[in-house]
Design a protein around this nucleic acid. Structure first.
Lengths: 318, 318
DNA sequence: GTCCATCATCGAAGCGCTTCGACTCGTTCG
DNA sequence: CGAACGAGTCGAAGCGCTTCGATGATGGAC
């Protein structure tokens, strides 16, 4: 009781006990706690890590989740590869984990059906197409891209381009389509011209990124929204440099949904970032909450985007 | 007993029981098994994932470990970030895991001292400088680089270059120094000229890789050994292309310790690869073995390298 | 002096398994 | 025909905790 605080214990008794605990190096057996208490203090993290995903970005989410979980005294059991699916049912059935966190969500993710079958609370970090009754967390990509378009439109640009992800990402991942659709929609609302291109077929490539940048610029775009890999950012900057175009005097740039530091690029770029910690902290909070008597309502929680200027936006032809 | 097989059970009784288990969807409670049995069926995987490491490569090891563990009915508890160290003591103390697997091993890794303190069996995937009494698993990098040098020397090359990792890797990681030293040593043994360079300072950069390739070629090297990132391989090939040098007619190449498919590069390159599955399978086997009554001997297990030709080696000036 | 609140102490139940010994059958073998 | 054996059943102990109710001890309020 001194350790769990579930019954009143006088402060200095607690200290006395704590001292002995420290001296003896006592630490309660995990298995016994799982059995006796109703908590395992473990979350499963299911992350298929498909071949075509951007591994470093995904790992930021894995780490952010692990760090957030530890803050609440939870460990992470990693379910990857084929176990991302099979493991979910298994750990739900044998009670190894208190909740399941789902990463790398596909639009038609098979784990959606699994989540509905099992009793273990499940939190999605990302939004599948069919999300009825699920708890999902994600950056508000629509608001983020809209903000990006607004920034450029407000600066006076009337023709802008979107440099997107590799093509497969628009089928296999859940947010790129949302970004592209939001881009076109907001540009239409603002009455400005909007074109877009991708940065590769299956894999991101520098050359594809450069070609797309070139095509958009040739098409008359005076500002670019970048929703692509760090590598592609570099390629776009290289293309601009080769054309002798300055940022922001000749071309304005804004990066949307990046997980890396756009200020550290050869030319710093304004950013409306995707912050793994934000999503993962919230997801872990929801996982904890779903363990107590009043679990959270199902639904999609969208995180409002933030904007960090680095001087890469200016009026056109400035 | 029908499920665990620890007492003789007639085959068809076992089948009958299995059928009922399936029908009922019964699956034994994980906490109860931990408490009653002496096995948790969980391995901890400690992987700091420092900022300066190559994340995709490391993840190959994480996944390979997870897959290997599952084959023996084990799950992986992920200890990353600061928990890579703190978590080790914790899970060892509370008996959450049966063994600990150590990834991303530094030459002076703090986890070496921890491993000696705790009772939980610990397997290092990588070889720290001070490895007395530890169980370590790794590719035999010395043999791998020696093989690479031999291949080139046997083909008749008398001046070769090594394109290495970024400079920090030679301090923070455990194998790059072994490769470099082995390179110089075997070249000396074979009486051929050997130079080397790196592919960046803190981070791998294409430009640094090209500069190093250029310097080695200008220095007279007719063959290059690549022990570097995929990105750097691409940069080296770009430099060769720009100089109009053909592989293998003008320059021979061999890649040592790569984890990606060198046959898929714009020019396929012979490879003496680092195979994550090989190390991780062995590590998991050792972890399992250290749970039974006769634990394995401490010591370093080096995995013999393999060689896969892709036609990138030929006699000089062919 | 009594009463009550506060906190420490005690004993016991039970979480859901694993593991063991003991016992019972029916069968086979010498 | 009895011994020996394989296979199934049964009961019980115990893994190391959490949680609960009950009982004691102490001190302040009245």
């Amino acid at each position: 009781y001194a350790l769990s605080g579930k019954r009143p214990v006088a402060p200095d008794t607690r200290r006395r006990i704590q001292r002995v605990v420290d001296e003896l190096g006592y630490s309660p057996n995990a298995g016994a706690r799982m059995l006796a208490g109703r908590r395992t203090q473990i979350f499963a993290l299911t992350e298929p890590l498909r071949k075509d995903t951007h591994v470093p970005t995904h790992m930021l989410f894995v780490i952010a989740t692990a760090v957030a979980a530890r803050r609440s005294d939870y460990d992470i059991l990693l379910l990857t590869d084929e176990q991302a699916q099979a493991g979910m049912s298994r750990v739900a059935a044998n009670g190894l984990v208190d909740a399941i966190l789902v990463l790398d969500v596909a639009p038609d993710d098979a784990r959606v059906a699994l989540a509905r079958q099992i009793a273990t609370p499940t939190i999605f970090i990302g939004v599948p197409d069919d999300n009825d009754g699920l708890i999902c967390v994600d950056l508000d990509f629509a608001a983020a891209i809209a903000r990006g378009v607004d920034l450029l439109a407000d600066a006076g640009h009337t023709s802008i381009g979107l440099i997107g992800q590799a093509e497969t990402a628009y089928e296999k991942s859940n947010f790129p389509p949302r970004v592209r659709a939001g881009f076109l929609e907001r540009a239409a609302d603002r009455g400005i011209r909007a074109d877009y291109g991708t940065t590769g077929g299956k894999q991101v490539s520098r050359s594809a990124a450069r070609r797309t940048a070139a095509a958009l610029l040739d098409g008359g775009a005076t500002a670019l929204v970048l929703h692509c890999a760090e590598e592609a950012h570099g390629a776009v900057l290289a293309e601009l440099a080769e054309r002798g175009l300055r940022v922001p005097e000749d071309v304005s740039l804004v990066s949307v949904g990046s997980t890396f530091d756009t200020a550290a690029l050869s030319t710093p770029i304004d950013s409306i970032p995707l912050v793994p910690e934000a999503s993962c902290d919230l997801a872990v909070a929801l996982a904890l909450e779903s363990l107590d008597s009043v679990p959270p309502e199902p639904g999609v929680r969208l995180i409002p985007p933030t904007y960090t200027p680095h001087g890469s936006i200016a009026p056109p032809g400035d």
